[in-house]
Design a protein around this nucleic acid. Structure first.
Lengths: 163, 163
DNA sequence: TATTGTTATACTCTATAACTATA
DNA sequence: TATAGTTATAGAGTATAACAATA
């Protein structure tokens, strides 16, 4: 089992110059330096790389983690609600949930009130794995705080959260 | 021509609750709320959506824009250097550059000093299109400043840039 | 008719391996 | 042998359309 998942390495918009080795010709990012999106993307890739590696040992992707978290916090919600909350296509959720169900982490129960809906919930194994994932995720978050410096971390979190 | 490119809509980690319509069952994001990565991703998607729409009218993706920008700022650089700077695989650059070359926006010149390398540069058409793209990009950036509020925009940019 | 879950298709992006031609 | 550019493949993510069952 334990599907081989590999961390993402690339940035759509560009990468930190520090990655270039040696003195070399010193390539510049040009106009990319005046795009907030470039830096947001860079930070996002960096954070996700660490998060992917963090959850790798329990064979969970960030997407799977977020699915478990939202199901756990909203026991019995439907696939359409989950899709809307996570911003993924209903169609994509199908395979995602299928795999989690195959690993006995979640259950899909036909709703008695509305025969079209599946009520989603974690199995006991799912709850156990999510608890483990949250412990790992907390360590990841602590790592971020250390690397970004606590003041900057807090500033970024406050600014983005309240946006 | 004008390939149909569609804006990305989904968020790996989740979406703003505000997206949910009506009072409804009020689904919560649970533990996602304590992850900086979740908010960074959310902001990144939001910024990129606007950027993608911005460049759509000149049939340019963010990746293509960043390629043109870096070539423009580093005339004559090699594909390997470009790949390292942008953090994309050398392999992926091939097709990307092939398309830009097909549209006569860039040129690949065999290096006389080292027969293995291709020296990259913009064609006059490429320079013209990039100039147009930069104008559009500046409007996009102005939109971000307005939506995020100038103080927050500056704070975020400073914090991420100097990280 | 509209919605839920599902299947299918097409395209993008990522990771990797292997090939060629040069060095 | 190492590097630059290339080709090919496999997997994940995204956008879309269409279908059956249910409302």
């Amino acid at each position: 089992m334990a599907r081989t998942r590999r961390p993402r390495k690339s940035l759509l918009l560009g990468r930190a110059e520090s990655t270039r080795r040696g003195p070399s010709p010193a390539i510049t990012l040009g106009a990319l330096n005046s795009h907030l999106g470039y830096f947001v993307r860079r930070l996002q890739i960096w954070v996700f790389q660490d998060f992917i590696r963090t959850l790798e040992r329990i064979d969970l992707s960030p997407a799977q983690y977020s699915v478990l978290v939202v199901i756990s916090a909203n026991r019995g919600l439907s696939q359409a609600e989950l899709a809307a909350t996570l911003g993924v296509e209903r169609a994509r959720l199908v395979r995602l949930l299928h795999r989690l169900e195959g690993r006995r982490l979640i259950q899909r129960l036909r709703s008695s009130a509305d025969g079209r809906r599946h009520a989603l919930r974690l199995t006991p194994q799912g709850q156990t794995l999510l608890a483990r994932a949250k412990t790992l995720a907390a360590r990841h978050e602590a790592r971020l705080i250390g690397r970004l410096r606590p003041e900057r971390y807090k500033m970024l979190l406050d600014a983005m959260r309240d946006f």
